[in-house]
């Protein structure tokens, strides 16, 4: 365990944690409202760690969706993580043991992925760094869920604090940092356009984040072709 790397991971997780607070809180409130006990709310955030997937599961269960439908939808929602996970492998290989790499990848959310990829541009990956990043972000997600489940009925609107813009702001800054090659800009722009178009014409794709998957596939493919 490398202490310096661990601290670096924890530090880099702070902006992620800040973005998770209002979301986890909202999840706790809504999950209680959908009939989950406080223990179930916290367990779900501890075991699933999938923002959109959890919101969708709660929404569907409240409107009478079947267990199978909820799971199938979650498969679609979480498909993009397979792409993220695969794309981190060239950075992890030879630096982390295969077991540590696979185990720590459980915590690969959109934000953890983007922050760690940004780090790997100039630094070698380490298990300590990734552990600090993943555990801190996960803890923030669990803690804010607990707060929401517990206090939900007292506090209603975090929008007036501007917290609803925490994740969009985070995406903007990570996008700025992850774009290096000219072809990265094209990949990002095309993906943005495809995500909006697919989401617009297929609302179910928007609701399941499947438009993000489609956009990523097309954007990345275009990047490869333009890079040739």
């Amino acid at each position: 365990m490398n202490k310096q790397e661990l601290h670096q991971g924890i530090r880099e997780a702070f902006p992620i944690a800040l973005g998770y607070l209002p979301l986890g809180f909202a999840f706790g409130v809504l999950a209680r409202d959908a009939g989950l006990s406080i223990i179930q709310c916290v367990s779900m955030s501890a075991l699933c760690l999938t923002g959109a997937g959890q919101f969708i599961a709660i929404g569907m269960s409240k409107s009478g969706g079947s267990l199978i439908a909820i799971i199938l939808t979650n498969i679609l929602v979480n498909l993009r993580y397979a792409l993220f996970a695969a794309s981190t492998v060239p950075h992890l290989k030879g630096r982390l043991s295969p077991t540590a790499a696979a185990a720590l990848s459980y915590g690969l959310t959109d934000e953890v992925y983007a922050v760690s990829m940004n780090r790997y541009r100039n630094h070698q990956a380490t298990a300590s760094y990734l552990a600090g990043l993943v555990f801190t972000a996960h803890l923030a997600w669990i803690g804010s869920t607990f707060a929401g489940a517990l206090l939900g009925q007292f506090i209603s609107n975090t929008d007036r604090l501007g917290m609803n813009f925490a994740l969009p702001a985070m995406y903007i800054s990570l996008l700025i940092m992850l774009v290096r090659r000219k072809t990265d800009i094209y990949a990002a722009l095309v993906a943005a356009l495809i995500a909006l178009l697919v989401g617009h014409f297929i609302p179910a794709a928007m609701a399941t984040n499947f438009n993000i998957v489609a956009a990523t596939l097309i954007g990345a493919t275009l990047g490869v072709f333009l890079n040739e």
Partner: peptide
């Protein structure tokens, strides 16, 4: 090589969707 474009693509998509929808 293809996977190296996943990060910019996914953040482009997430940014656009979070701001415009």
């Amino acid at each position: 090589k293809w996977l190296s474009f996943v990060a910019p693509a996914v953040l482009g998509a997430l940014t656009a969707v979070s701001i415009l929808t």
